[in-house]
Amino acid sequence: MEWLTPVKPGFGGFDEPYERANVVFVGVPLDITSSYRSGYRFGPARIREASANLETYLMAAGLDVFERLNISDLGDLEVTPTDLKATGERILRTVQRIKGDEKMPVLLGGEHTLTYFATQAFDDVFVVQLDAHRDLRDEYLGDKICHATVMRRVLDFLPPERLVQVGVRSCSKEEAEFAREAKILAYSSEQVIDDASRIIAEVRKLVGKARVYLTIDLDVLDPAFAPGVATPE
């Protein structure tokens, strides 16, 4: 596949041939629009490194997930540091190819901006966003497409009722007003702590059998446990 650099070992050390895989990992070391700390580009490598030590057996479910999943890791997508548009086009086309081959794409970031490009590959999808921030600014520091505007740009082509934000604990006045007017469903970090089971049940009921694009920004975690993110909150 174009624009990809193989990485060994892949996620979890699992490396099925692409043709046999039903889940396909791609690293996206995107690090272009950071406004506080840079370092997003190291994310894919660090995630793969940590994945080598993960147990794959889920005690609560009584199964080993990798007995059901065939995983292929295609390596890292080529990023042009001075051209977000060109990089975004590669992200979109790569996800379209994987989806078109009836496989599940899993992207390892990289900055959150990649979500804007990747979600364009899907029709009739719910986006479930785990994030400390709402990312709903219309522009930030003169940029219309960046880590602080990514979900606002997603809503340029996705109805607001198709976005669910979980774990938010910070936003600007502009974002709060936009979210209120658009009636975007959101759960704060306090609500998650108080009653996570209820929130999971409500989101599952809302989504039903529709496709879900799950996007996780690591700053959703308490900075006491994940202090090394680009924009800790």
Results as ranks from 00 to 15, higher is better:
227 P>S: 02
197 S>G: 12
58 L>V: 14
126 F>H: 08
170 S>Q: 12
122 F>W: 08
89 E>V: 10
196 A>L: 12
138 D>Y: 05
164 V>P: 05
171 C>G: 04
100 G>I: 06
133 H>E: 09
174 E>F: 12
128 V>R: 04
64 D>S: 08
124 D>S: 09
111 E>N: 06
176 A>C: 08
100 G>C: 01
158 L>F: 02
11 F>E: 05
102 E>L: 14
135 D>Y: 08
194 D>G: 11
153 R>A: 00
82 T>M: 12
225 F>N: 08
97 R>Y: 12
16 E>W: 11
97 R>H: 15
20 R>W: 09
171 C>L: 05
41 R>S: 09
154 V>K: 03
220 V>F: 01
130 L>T: 09
63 L>M: 15
28 V>K: 01
29 P>K: 10
37 R>I: 08
165 Q>L: 14
59 M>G: 10
64 D>H: 09
144 K>C: 08
44 P>L: 03
89 E>G: 07
209 K>E: 15
69 L>I: 14
84 L>K: 06
166 V>A: 01
73 D>Q: 11
35 S>C: 11
28 V>G: 08
220 V>Y: 03
155 L>C: 04
36 Y>P: 09
74 L>E: 06
123 D>S: 15
39 G>Y: 01
131 D>Q: 00
36 Y>Q: 12
44 P>H: 05
42 F>I: 11
35 S>Q: 04
129 Q>G: 08
192 V>G: 06
165 Q>R: 10
32 I>S: 09
101 D>Q: 10
115 T>K: 05
127 V>I: 09
192 V>R: 02
32 I>E: 07
109 G>C: 01
166 V>W: 01
40 Y>T: 14
38 S>T: 13
100 G>H: 05
40 Y>C: 15
194 D>E: 15
217 D>R: 00
11 F>I: 01
161 E>M: 02
193 I>E: 02
157 F>E: 15
130 L>D: 11
44 P>V: 00
196 A>E: 13
27 G>W: 08
10 G>K: 07
133 H>V: 11
183 K>L: 14
128 V>W: 05
145 I>F: 03
135 D>G: 04
217 D>K: 02
149 T>N: 01
186 A>I: 05
30 L>D: 02
155 L>E: 06
119 T>C: 06
163 L>P: 05
89 E>P: 09
176 A>W: 10
104 M>K: 13
21 A>Y: 05
187 Y>D: 04
77 L>V: 00
201 A>Q: 12
70 N>L: 14
53 N>Y: 15
152 R>A: 11
2 E>M: 13
123 D>C: 10
220 V>K: 01
155 L>H: 01
17 P>E: 10
141 L>M: 15
7 V>T: 04
32 I>C: 09
42 F>R: 03
54 L>D: 10
201 A>Y: 10
13 G>T: 03
226 A>E: 04
77 L>Y: 07
148 A>Y: 06
43 G>I: 02
74 L>G: 04
80 T>R: 12
78 E>P: 11
34 S>G: 15
27 G>F: 10
153 R>S: 04
196 A>Q: 13
179 A>L: 05
90 R>K: 11
70 N>K: 14
63 L>Y: 13
189 S>N: 12
203 V>I: 15
100 G>K: 10
36 Y>T: 11
88 G>V: 01
168 V>H: 11
174 E>I: 06
175 E>P: 05
